[in-house]
């Protein structure tokens, strides 16, 4: 990264009782970047969000925003953050504008400056025509936009959002994604958590969290390229059949012919994995394999698909297991 990082996270860990929710996570976010933390529920995203939002202190490690640590002046640190929680923080009995004015007063703003800033943000978020309406009359998508306007009131250096698209319909989700991308283009650093691949896809860079560890870091395109080649997925009737089939296919294919240049050495040599009732094959010569597999294992699978690697493939490639919610999740760190 060329520019001095705006957010730098170093060796951050957090335990909940005996459980290690976050395990020595390290990454940087550059100014003006749209950065997504992707991971299944229980992967540690929300714990990391709570740490960065200064809701909870870390068990170990440090982080800085704009060169400041929350261990110094917590108030100064918090001035640099705009936080959007997963659950709404707007007062439903106040109007949109009143919510912004109260929050502005909490930040120490007031008078004409606050009113014009609030008005400007509401029009930027496309909700200025609803300024005088009670928040309880707003749709989920519009309310989320007001939340973002509220978080931006203090002109924070970084906008932190926890699963911002939760509870939004697909259309509102898409327009939220466009809004965040536009904010980042205009210079606001945006750091969000998500468990949706398409949301992470829209980020400039992503960090993938699994079981508290950061397992991948980079742009979505780079990460997918590192998986290398193509991904073939065979769907079978059961997990047992998939396990047996994957062993036979691994033997049939032999060692991976020529790893793509710059590709990431996955944790499972041979690149044939059984995941539940599916068998997943990563090979640079995907198209050529389709007829060979279809001929040699006819009747052993229900469908065979060939595609370029997705972020889900990146996750599977890095972790060796499917993208699903952690079973040990106690709900608090989800």
């Amino acid at each position: 990264m060329s520019a001095r990082p705006l957010v730098s996270v170093e060796g951050l860990s957090r335990t909940w009782g005996d459980r290690l929710a976050l395990d020595r996570v390290t990454f940087d976010v550059a100014p003006g970047e749209l950065f997504a933390l992707l991971g299944p529920n229980g992967g540690g995203k929300t714990t990391l969000f709570k740490l960065l939002a200064t809701l909870i202190p870390p068990s170990e490690g440090t982080f800085r925003v704009d060169g400041l640590s929350p261990d110094g002046s917590l108030r100064e640190f918090r001035r640099r953050l705009g936080v959007v929680f997963q659950s709404p923080s707007l007062d439903r009995k106040l109007t949109v504008l009143e919510n912004l004015l109260v929050h502005g007063a909490i930040l120490g703003l007031g008078g004409h400056a606050l009113r014009s800033r609030a008005g400007e943000l509401l029009s930027r978020m496309g909700v200025d025509d609803r300024a005088r309406d009670l928040v309880e009359t707003l749709s989920g998508g519009l309310a989320r936009r007001v939340e973002i306007a509220k978080a931006l009131l203090g002109a924070p250096k970084v906008l932190l959002l926890d699963e911002p698209s939760t509870g939004l319909d697909p259309l509102a989700r898409r327009s939220l994604r466009a809004l965040l991308a536009e904010l980042a283009r205009a210079g606001t650093t945006v750091l969000l958590t998500t468990h949706l691949f398409d949301e992470a896809e829209a980020a400039g860079r992503i960090g993938i969290l699994d079981r508290g560890r950061l397992v991948a870091l980079g742009s979505p395109a780079d990460l997918k390229r590192e998986v290398g080649g193509d991904v073939l997925v065979l769907v079978t009737e059961s997990a047992d059949l998939a396990t047996a089939l994957s062993a036979e296919i691994a033997a049939f294919l032999g060692p991976d012919p020529a790893p793509a240049p710059g590709s990431h050495p996955g944790p499972h040599p041979g690149r044939v994995t059984a995941l539940g009732p599916t068998v997943r094959i990563e090979r640079p010569d995907g198209p050529a394999l389709v007829p060979a597999l279809a001929a040699s294992f006819a009747g052993r699978f229900r469908s065979l698909t060939l595609g370029a690697p997705s972020l889900e493939d990146v996750f599977v490639d890095r972790t060796g297991h499917p993208f699903e919610d952690a079973p040990t999740d106690d709900g608090r760190a989800a």
């Binding site: 918090r78 936080v83 929680f85 007062d91 120490g108 203090g154």
Partner: peptide
Amino acid sequence: EGFLQAVVVSPVSPFA
């Protein structure tokens, strides 16, 4: 309802 969570992480003093 979540109103206080935004107050908690804002730079406002708890005294206020």
